[in-house]
Write a protein that binds this DNA or RNA. Structure first.
Lengths: 213, 213
DNA sequence: TAGATTGTTAATCGATTAACAATC
DNA sequence: TAGATTGTTAATCGATTAACAATC
């Protein structure tokens, strides 16, 4: 597995990817670390170091091929694969994520949505019938699901995760405002929207303070 | 303003806050850094150091008062204030955020939602009429809005931000999949949902690789 | 007082940046 | 070849952790 890649580098990869998509849409086919540095607001050394973690994608005296680099980063992130995704919790956030087109473009295919509320089960969300979480076990046995998105209230988040993991789910994207714990071997990303809002609130306060008011 | 607080510390504050809320709901009224360390998965030294950035909230030989500590962190994050919030973009994400009850509990009051699509303007979203972005200028002159949430497609994100800033908005919470740039003096938090999904995809790949398959 | 736990300094670790040799 | 730019090592910076004196 060669060298362990640092989490800091991994978190920057999507940003590189977005930037490269933009270059591609502008028909730019080569780019240097110093130009990226200016446009992305990162240090050029850092960019070269980051990209070099995965192999020498660049060429001295020339720079990086946009197409090649984008393809490599996609491969590293696993965006060259297709994923079947389910949503747990048919509230507004769950429904919104189910319909988020941008994910589909990159191979994340949201196939079904579940809830435990009898009032919601059976109703239609974006052309899909909301399924009962009670059917999750048999559902997951049949279908090949890669990722589950947890959009339940926080009280249900951990037990949902436990259930999903016990049925073999290997990746959880958690939107409930609590950290979910899983055994080693299962991937989790906690999103924590309100954390981000609180940080914004802090920053706002600092800005106002800065003006001397 | 004493010492500059590091961004890493700020990002942990919401997590402390969530944890303290939980303790409070369990009627626990004191806590030590070592207990927090076990339950939060952070290093005890780090916790004491973090909390000490803002003043000596603890008491030697005793620990921290849950109530006092929670109140202090709320104050630091600015959660003791009330904020008026508007949403730009009445798509599914915008609507979901508008209805997200958890924010309201902490003083973030989403008052109106805007869109530039004539088909959406005038329709009702959660009991609120979608307003035309063209009316933003006069609207912001009248009302006292603190935070704008950008939920537009990425093509509109930067121009929305520019507009909002020119009308005096001081804090932007951006959900469009692109970084928005603003002048110094304006606070921005970029959320980037797909970045987080890509990182999950990477982690999943690593986990699968780890099993030797 | 003795025990516990904070606040804080010193040591370590990891991440970023600068510098430059390698090479296209 | 000369110029440009990467890949990579060395230097710096910042964040985490360990250790312990202060003190409740």
């Amino acid at each position: 597995m060669s060298e362990k890649i640092s989490p800091a580098v991994i978190r920057r990869l999507p940003k590189y990817y977005r930037y490269l998509e933009e270059l591609e849409s502008k028909k730019i086919d080569k780019i240097s670390s110093s130009q990226m540095s200016i446009e992305m607001g990162l240090n050029a050394s850092q960019i070269r170091r980051d990209l070099n973690c995965f192999g020498g994608f660049g060429q001295q005296g020339y720079g990086y091929s946009v197409e090649k680099l984008k393809k490599e980063i996609a491969r590293i992130l696993g965006l060259d694969q297709r994923y079947n995704v389910i949503v747990i919790g048919a509230g507004r956030i769950g429904q919104a994520l189910m319909g988020y087109k941008n994910f589909m473009l990159e191979g994340f295919n949201v196939v079904d949505i579940f809830d435990n509320d009898p009032a919601k089960v059976g109703t239609e969300v974006l052309g899909r019938e909301v399924m009962d979480v009670a059917r999750l076990s048999s559902y997951l046995e049949e279908k090949n699901i890669d990722i589950a998105i947890i959009c339940t209230p926080k009280e249900y988040a951990q037990q949902s995760a436990d259930l999903l993991v016990s049925f073999g789910i290997k990746a959880i994207w958690n939107f409930a405002p609590t950290d979910v714990a899983v055994r080693r071997g299962v991937a989790v990303e906690n999103v924590h929207l309100s954390d981000s809002l609180y940080v914004l609130s802090y920053k706002l306060k600092e800005k106002i303070k800065g003006t001397g008011i």
